[in-house]
């Protein structure tokens, strides 16, 4: 069963003919060509596919594309603006929150979602928010440091703006 699916992906309105049984992750990767969103497991066990739907972190591998009709979807490809990495992206790069990079898009999107609602997360809050995202390289320490560094950047730029 195919029908037209409309949503906004990384700021661009889209309308695509999409099957009812298509997962959001497959829609993003295969229809939109946004392969930054990764598949690491057979469904909901690793968090690599996390994207933002209306600002909230979602597992795109356990979400039907059509369930997101009308929503604003953001992927890792949409995070850098005007050639500048987002605070989360630059922190993951600078602090080595990313080694092999495969869990990174999911980690970045989950962190982004956390920091949009809580710019001063405690270490425990970071651990809890990212608890569903598995990384096999880092032992998580530098990921936590990356999120903390991103929070600092965000808070500093807010203060500067005020």
């Amino acid at each position: 069963m195919n029908s037209v699916l409309q949503m906004t992906v990384n700021g661009r309105p889209r309308a695509d003919v999409v099957a009812d049984n298509m997962l959001l992750v497959d829609y993003l990767r295969e229809v939109c060509g946004l392969t930054g969103t990764k598949i690491g497991c057979d469904g909901g066990e690793c968090g690599a596919c996390t994207i933002l739907a209306d600002g909230g972190a979602r597992l795109s591998c356990l979400t039907l594309a059509h369930s997101c009709a009308g929503q604003v979807i953001e992927t890792v490809e949409g995070q850098a603006t005007r050639g500048e990495l987002s605070a989360v992206q630059s922190s993951f790069h600078e602090k080595l929150g990313s080694q092999c990079g495969y869990c990174t898009p999911g980690m970045i999107m989950t962190s982004e979602s956390l920091l949009r609602t809580n710019t001063n997360p405690t270490e425990d809050e970071i651990r809890e928010a990212l608890g569903g995202n598995i990384c096999r390289c880092t032992g998580y320490i530098k990921i936590i440091e990356s999120v903390q560094a991103a929070a600092e950047i965000i808070n500093a730029s807010r203060e500067a703006a005020e």
């Binding site: 069963m1 009812d20 992750v25 497959d26 598949i39 057979d42 469904g43 591998c61 059509h66």
Partner: peptide, 12 residues
């Protein structure tokens, strides 16, 4: 890509 069985999604 994951191949899901075919179904119709109803969104009441």
């Amino acid at each position: 890509m994951e191949v899901l069985p075919e179904f119709k999604l109803h969104r009441p």
